[in-house]
Amino acid sequence: MGSPLFITVLFTGMFLVCAGLGIALLVSPKSFNAQKGEAYECGIPTHGTSWMQFKVGYYLYAILYLMFDVEAVFLFPWATVVRDLGTAGLISVLVFLLFLGLGLAYAWKKGALEWK
């Protein structure tokens, strides 16, 4: 099934997670009031329900931002070892940037980046 070391590590991890959650429940301050259950919007009391519809364009814009942001994070490890990679590393990151640029051009052409 598993080695004794694996089982020990597994149970130690489970114990540490449970211990951390238990200590947090015991030590954390507790306050029960109706205001904690309300939606919070920049310190301004909300009017109406918090389950309101919004344009799907805002969601699409946010997803595109996150997608390109996460893909840009992949450039940081490359930048730390750029001298060790040589020409092959440069070509691979140029292909990566080409695909990023094509994705951005496609989103731009489809009008996903327009704020209407």
Rank of each mutant, 00 (worst) to 15 (best):
G103Q: 05
K110R: 09
P45K: 00
G57V: 11
A34W: 04
V93C: 14
L5I: 06
R83P: 07
K110A: 10
L5W: 05
S50N: 09
F32I: 08
V70T: 02
K30M: 13
G2I: 13
T8P: 00
A39H: 12
N33T: 12
V95D: 02
L90C: 14
T8V: 11
P4F: 13
E38F: 06
G86V: 04
K109F: 08
Y58F: 14
Y65D: 05
G2R: 11
V9L: 15
A105I: 01
T80I: 06
A107L: 03
S3F: 12
C42E: 00
G20Q: 07
L100G: 12
G43A: 13
L102M: 14
L113N: 02
V82M: 15
F54T: 03
T12Q: 12
L85R: 11
L25V: 03
Y59R: 09
K110N: 07
A105R: 07
F68L: 11
P77T: 00
L98H: 04
W115Q: 06
P4V: 14
P29T: 09
T12W: 11
L102C: 08
E38H: 04
G89H: 04
M14A: 14
C42H: 06
L90R: 12
C18P: 00
Y59M: 12
V82H: 15
S28W: 03
F6L: 05
E38G: 06
V9G: 01
T80S: 09
G89M: 01
P77V: 01
M1P: 11
I7G: 01
A19H: 09
F74Y: 05
L85G: 05
E71A: 12
F76A: 13
L113A: 09
S92G: 02
A112C: 14
Q53I: 09
L100P: 06
V95Q: 09
E114L: 15
G20V: 11
I7Y: 13
A79N: 04
G22K: 02
I44M: 11
Y61K: 02
A88I: 15
A19K: 01
D84M: 07
A19I: 06
G48V: 03
S50V: 01
G48S: 04
F15A: 15
M14W: 15
S50Q: 01
Y61S: 05
I23C: 14
S3V: 07
K36R: 15
V9Q: 08
E41F: 07
L26N: 08
S3I: 09
L64Q: 02
F96R: 03
G2Y: 03
I63A: 03
I63W: 02
G20E: 10
N33E: 15
L66D: 00
G103I: 00
F99Q: 12
V70L: 11
S31R: 14
F6A: 05
L64W: 03
L10M: 15
L98G: 02
Y61R: 04
G43Q: 11
G101A: 14
A88W: 12
F68K: 03
V81Y: 12
Y61D: 01
V73R: 06
G89K: 07
G20N: 06
G37Y: 02
P77L: 08
W115F: 12
Y106F: 11
A24G: 07
F96M: 14
V73K: 04
